[in-house]
């Protein structure tokens, strides 16, 4: 089980604003390993996550998740891969307005075609695991940025995805909270055995990660 990115090229924008976000990028990410994706702003970290997470189709190259090329799938199959195989923690806009922490997870279950009631206990377990047992009935506007990210992480883990993608988990979070989040990511990666890729600027996450991939010096395959 692994994620293999093969010679990915992605261009964004049109006309004069057209830029090459990824140019022949290649790397391999292994299960149970948290890989930190580092590099300056604009180096293509979020684009790489979007391509790996079947949100964005590359111009060229392959995204092999356990042998399936996500880049070659049609729109419907890519949506299916997102809900069944990928857990995504976005940098912002992660949660649905007006829904409680518990409902955020149950909504994801519903999207995946699973019976929310059957996953209620698991949702509570995960929220407890990310330290939010006391926040089950809180809505996003009643939670801090760190708490919202932890809910998004619990939601991403609910259906035990093969691939966990996390974008800037510690942005605008103080050091103590950042250390907690980084530790949580490492712990969950090891526990659930997912291929975890975290785009980050934060040395706290980099230090906690099992491996690092620098966007400016990409390996042919990332070592774990």
């Amino acid at each position: 089980m692994s994620l293999h990115l093969d010679a990915l090229t992605v261009t964004l924008g049109r006309g004069d604003s057209r830029t090459t976000a990824l140019d022949g990028f290649g790397a391999t990410f292994r299960p149970g390993v948290l890989t930190a994706l580092v590099g300056p702003s604009g180096s293509g970290k979020s684009t790489l996550l979007a391509v790996a997470g079947a949100l964005l189709r590359p111009d060229r190259g392959r995204v092999l998740l356990n042998g399936t090329d996500l880049a070659a799938l049609g729109d419907r199959e890519r949506a299916r891969a997102r809900r069944e195989r990928v857990g995504y923690v976005f940098q912002s806009g992660n949660l649905l307005t007006g829904l409680t922490a518990e409902e955020q997870l149950l909504a994801a279950a519903s999207i995946a075609g699973r019976r929310p009631r059957a996953l209620r206990a698991r949702a509570r377990e995960l929220l407890t695991e990310v330290g939010l047992a006391h926040r089950l009935a809180h809505r996003p506007d009643q939670l801090s940025g760190g708490e919202r990210r932890r809910i998004a992480l619990a939601r991403a883990l609910l259906l035990e995805p093969e691939l966990l993608l996390v974008d800037e988990p510690t942005a605008a979070v103080d050091r103590s909270r950042a250390e907690d989040l980084a530790a949580l990511l490492v712990r969950t990666t090891h526990r659930y055995g997912s291929v975890t890729v975290v785009a980050t600027h934060d040395p706290v996450v980099t230090e906690a990660a099992d491996a690092t991939v620098d966007m400016l010096r990409p390996p042919v395959s990332a070592s774990a």
Binding site: G53, L55, D75, R76, A79, R80, A81, R82, R83, E84, V86, Y88, F90, G93, N94, L95, L96, A108, I111, A112
Partner: peptide
Amino acid sequence: LLRALGASR
């Protein structure tokens, strides 16, 4: 967000 989480059209 729902589309990103895999909701079909």
